[in-house]
Design a protein around this nucleic acid. Structure first.
Lengths: 189, 189
DNA sequence: GGCGACATGTAAGGCGTTACATGATTGC
DNA sequence: GCAATCATGTAACGCCTTACATGTCGCC
């Protein structure tokens, strides 16, 4: 049940509406969790009902009104309790890896196309995370920021996201190169 | 619905029983997917019913009998169809990242303990994957194997697993170092 | 006799995905 | 007028997790 804790963690920095949260969790700014809008609206309702967050209506002239949520003391306590719990190990679960596992038995062309697309996707995320990290540390160097900065949690998770996507990109490119070379060798026979 | 395809991919190399599959999917040899025994037994039953795998009873003297499964032609076709489908992007979803995101608001000691444990877990997986990769490529060098080897799919996924766990380990160690230094600085105030 | 490995499941409940639904405002 | 963005949901289905259940064999 980490979704609720992910939401609480996301609301630590600023008040957000469901819609704003959804954008953050969907478009990859969520370097530490992923969720769809529907999940978020449902969980926000639950969290408010349980008193872990509190919402306030914000009336807007030009746009539909919205509700901004912030973490309550009870929410902070719950987050602390969660952090002290033993964490489960995390596992990779990726369609693309399954396909590559079967690479010797399936259509190579389709695989190459998907690996290429994934590499581009990873590259886009890298740029995003890079910009985000730079924005967070401001004028400070990384070492300096991590020593003296106020809020380093998001920076650390951003670094993990960056490295993960770099790994993704590089692996995809390598796999494409390998598959292409084998394709060429096969054609020559 | 990638579990079934993960099973098919795992059965490409050798006939396996549900129990053997479960070990592979559970203990981390599964570098491309993760699943619990219950899921596997249920999915194996479905797959057999649908004709994508076929099982044969193996009578054993010293141990309980078991059923070994292999992929049918229909199973291979299904796997090929799956591989041609556009893949969804994969996301990190990790309790530990949520906790680190909230690092500035929760107990640092508990976090350090969990990061240390995770680093050790990752290190163990690295050794496992390393040994597996070495076994797969045999006497050949990596470049040579990837060019001429018979079955490179599992090797490529193993490489991704290796890199992922290295990233995990290094990030955990870095985070621990950062948190420790800040703890020390805080104590001096 | 008990523990650990082998071997295979059922059942309940929670979490995530897909599809559907509604309505206002800004910009082309 | 139409599409995109803002803003918030409901419903159905399926996958994943947790707990429970059963039985054999080898070893200490």
């Amino acid at each position: 049940m980490a979704l609720r804790h992910a939401i609480l963690a996301a609301l630590l920095d600023e008040e957000l509406s469901g819609y704003q949260l959804a954008k953050a969790f969907d478009t990859g700014v969520a370097n530490f969790w992923h969720a769809l809008p529907q999940q978020l609206y449902a969980e926000l309702a639950k969290l408010e009902k349980e008193g872990l967050i509190s919402g306030r209506e914000v009336v807007q002239d030009t746009r539909p009104n919205k509700r901004l949520f912030q973490v309550t003391d009870a929410g902070l306590a719950e987050l602390d309790r969660f952090a002290a719990d033993t964490a489960k190990p995390s596992f990779i679960r990726d369609d693309l890896l399954v396909k590559v596992q079967a690479a010797d038995h399936v259509d190579t062309g389709a695989l190459i196309a998907q690996l290429t697309e994934r590499a581009a996707f990873a590259e886009a995320k890298i740029r995003l995370f890079d910009a985000l990290a730079q924005k967070m540390r401001g004028d400070l160097g990384e070492e300096e920021f991590l020593r003296d900065g106020e809020r380093i949690g998001p920076y650390l998770t951003c670094m993990r996201g960056l490295d993960f996507e770099r790994g993704n990109r590089d692996w995809c490119r390598r796999a494409v190169a390998v598959l292409r070379e084998r394709q060429a060798a096969h054609a020559q026979q």
